[in-house]
Amino acid sequence: MATAPYNYSYIFKYIIIGDMGVGKSCLLHQFTEKKFMADCPHTIGVEFGTRIIEVSGQKIKLQIWDTAGQERFRAVTRSYYRGAAGALMVYDITRRSTYNHLSSWLTDARNLTNPNTVIILIGNKADLDAQRDVTYEEAKQFAEENGLLFLEASAKTGENVEDAFLEAAKKIYQNIQDGSLDLNAAESGVQHKPSAPQGGRITNEPQPQREGCGC
């Protein structure tokens, strides 16, 4: 077995939110497995997936928490916003009600995450254009007014699914470069590995992320 040549430099924590049945789990599945899950059961509580992507030559591990959309889980899922670097806020372009609820999701996201958390709005089920209930322009405007990234995607065809996760990661990475995201603190949703090795050479140099050992 060959040694995997990579290791990642950062871990970004994401959270996926939105109404029940908009396709949150399918988006995650499409992103991590590159497959469409046709008969996706309702998420119970919170599920979890990871994938390593590359942004500007840096390997980034995305740790994605997919929440249940059902109201009864709302109290539980709220606890997972903590320290998310990115939030994917999903609605279904064929169901207006899921779009109308966005403001309440956005309020939750804003209240429960860092000011730096990157929120991307995703109109899912873009393949069902014939049944469209929310226009692209309208959602685009909503996103602009609220300072969100925006994409229409389809978990079924895979269209824009990669981009949705990548765009958010790019933006987060940009925040890191700008220095607006403080990496030296816990729970920023980003974990940085300063001595990212490429050649498999590991040294025992002390890592500056934490000072002192509490145990």
Binding site: A4, Q191, H192, P197, R201, R210
Partner: peptide, 10 residues
Amino acid sequence: TQESCDISPV
């Protein structure tokens, strides 16, 4: 012992 824990290939 840091919060982030990157397991090196080595």
